[in-house]
């Protein structure tokens, strides 16, 4: 049991070392948000008959903007669309780029604002890429996210077991584990039970 778990902990840790390191550092960057530098903003206008059509609801508006994705040079995946200023605003996002498309039906044109983030900003964006929608690349990335998340649970549980087996003096470990568990459980319980 001990040897098997040690091997699993070790090899899984090696396989996911880069991912764990990435999530730790990018998470820290997000935690201290605002240090990413300003994104480069480019605005353009695109003419297309598609933007002349009326959209009766959000689904129809989404179809219109997605049908023109190539002309608009959309690089991210669809995030949202909402009615605004007598027309529609649609948002697309990838790790490094955020795009907003605005159009008013009947005018036959759309404006697109593209924000390209700095490398640090893109790393923070990559930390926030989740969800299985958006095509094969996003689906594959979502599987990685699940795998890393499950591995986190596995590292925590197997790590406690391995410490228990390795260390004869367990008091320092109990104090460390007890303090961190008390803080975490205390916070969650306060949020669940407080009025």
């Amino acid at each position: 049991m001990y040897k098997t778990l040690r091997k699993i902990h070790g090899y899984l840790g090696l396989a996911l070392a880069a991912a764990v390191f990435f999530y730790a550092i990018s998470g820290w960057l997000i935690y201290h948000g605002g240090r990413f530098g300003e994104p480069v903003v480019v605005e353009a206008r695109v003419t297309s008959d598609a933007f002349s059509a009326e959209a009766k609801d959000r689904a129809a508006a989404r179809r219109i903007v997605e049908a023109s994705a190539d002309e608009l040079a959309i690089v991210g995946r669809f995030k949202s669309v909402r009615p605004a200023a007598g027309g529609w605003h649609a948002n697309f996002k990838s790790a490094s780029v955020q795009q907003e498309v605005r159009w008013i039906p009947g005018q036959g044109t759309a404006s697109i604002k593209t924000r390209t983030f700095t490398t640090a900003g893109a790393l923070a964006g990559l930390h926030r890429v989740y969800g299985t929608s958006g095509g094969p690349a996003h689906f594959a990335f979502a599987i990685l996210v699940d795998f890393v998340a499950l591995a986190m649970l596995g590292f925590a549980l197997s790590g406690v077991y391995l410490w228990w087996k390795i260390k004869r003096k367990r008091m320092p470990g109990w104090v460390t584990l007890g303090a961190s568990t008390a803080a975490t459980v205390g916070l969650v319980l306060q949020l669940i039970l407080a009025r």
């Binding site: 299985t132 998340a149 925590a156 470990g173």
Partner: peptide
């Protein structure tokens, strides 16, 4: 490695569960 691991074990549980929740909405 051992003691820092013990320190952040509950954090890993919270972040592991919440990451799955984010990923699957």
């Amino acid at each position: 490695h051992l003691y820092l691991g013990l320190l952040c074990a509950p954090y890993l549980v919270v972040y592991g569960v919440s990451a799955i929740a984010f990923n699957h909405d």
